[in-house]
Design a protein around this nucleic acid. Structure first.
Lengths: 154, 154
DNA sequence: GCTTGACCTAAACTTAAGTTGAGGAATTAC
DNA sequence: GTAATTCCTCAACTTAAGTTTAGGTCAAGC
């Protein structure tokens, strides 16, 4: 492979549209692993641009840094990834995307059943489906639903 | 057990699955407007349960408090909303949902064009479309829905 | 060979969406 | 009538994903 000269953080920022501080932050979180020049400045590979672009796309879809980091776990740190490397993580990413789309579509379909009735009455309304909210987040007592005995919506 | 008397914050927490502190927080953000007892304690309407359930659903699909607040702007503050009130905001909610689904589908479709090539090269790759980043999600996408994170590249 | 601009680290600050804790007051239970 | 709950406010703390600032260092242009 031709010895391509490395990119400075400013170059990478210009090419990705990310801020310099965000790129440094991502390095701190282990999402990129630039080398250093003799003077201590970051030196990026051209493939890091792809890595960073992927981060932006994944974030747009709602993945956290943590999740992206998991996806990246299988990429080589210091070497330009191969096509197969990228294919693998793209596939995993696509599965995540599919799941999220499916969840939103389920919510939409349930909402359609509710638009007219305005119920949202925990017991009757499918929209409020704890399976989707799942073991989401936060501490605290998760849904004790419900025993709404009333037939009519409030 | 007076049938239609107001609910305490603890009752509401038990019925919705929200924490007491979260409910207080939502009141501070103007999402619910409980009255007060003579002693200064919050007294909720039964319809507030629906309001809070809606908040949970909307958050699950990624709306911020701010956006939910906008949706709620047309609901009466101190009176139980009518069916028409709920229909209106359900409709607006559905439009938001549709937009987000469409964004994710566009991303998925672009991803499909990329899985084999692994390009992601900003210039050439459609996946990286700044127009989508601009709108959509404001600062930092807040899709909180988890339970998807176990999909991994291996 | 100096001067400017790009870069470095570390720490503090920001926003969102809450949680936790302190110090009291109101209700409920016996 | 007291004890135990539950609730109140206010303030500080938390996490995520960065940004901003302060005080320096490196490298490129003239």
């Amino acid at each position: 492979m031709a010895a391509q000269k490395g990119l400075s953080i400013g170059d990478v920022a210009a090419r990705t549209g990310l801020s310099v501080s965000a790129i440094r932050f991502y390095e701190g979180r282990g999402l990129v692993h630039p080398e250093r020049s003799s003077g201590g400045q970051r030196v990026f590979l051209r493939s890091d641009i792809r890595r960073l672009s992927f981060i932006m796309i994944a974030q747009q879809i709602g993945l956290t840094i943590e999740e992206i980091s998991d996806l990246f776990a299988s990429l080589p740190e210091r070497r330009t990834p191969t096509k197969a490397d990228w294919s693998r993580i793209s596939g995993a990413f696509r599965r995540m995307l599919d799941e999220r789309i499916a969840l939103m579509e389920r919510t939409r379909d349930r909402l359609d059943g509710c638009i007219g009735c305005g119920c949202l009455s925990l017991k009757k309304c499918q929209l409020y489906n704890p399976e989707d909210r799942a073991r989401g987040l936060g501490t605290g007592p998760r849904f004790v639903l419900d025993n709404v005995s009333q037939v009519r919506a409030d």
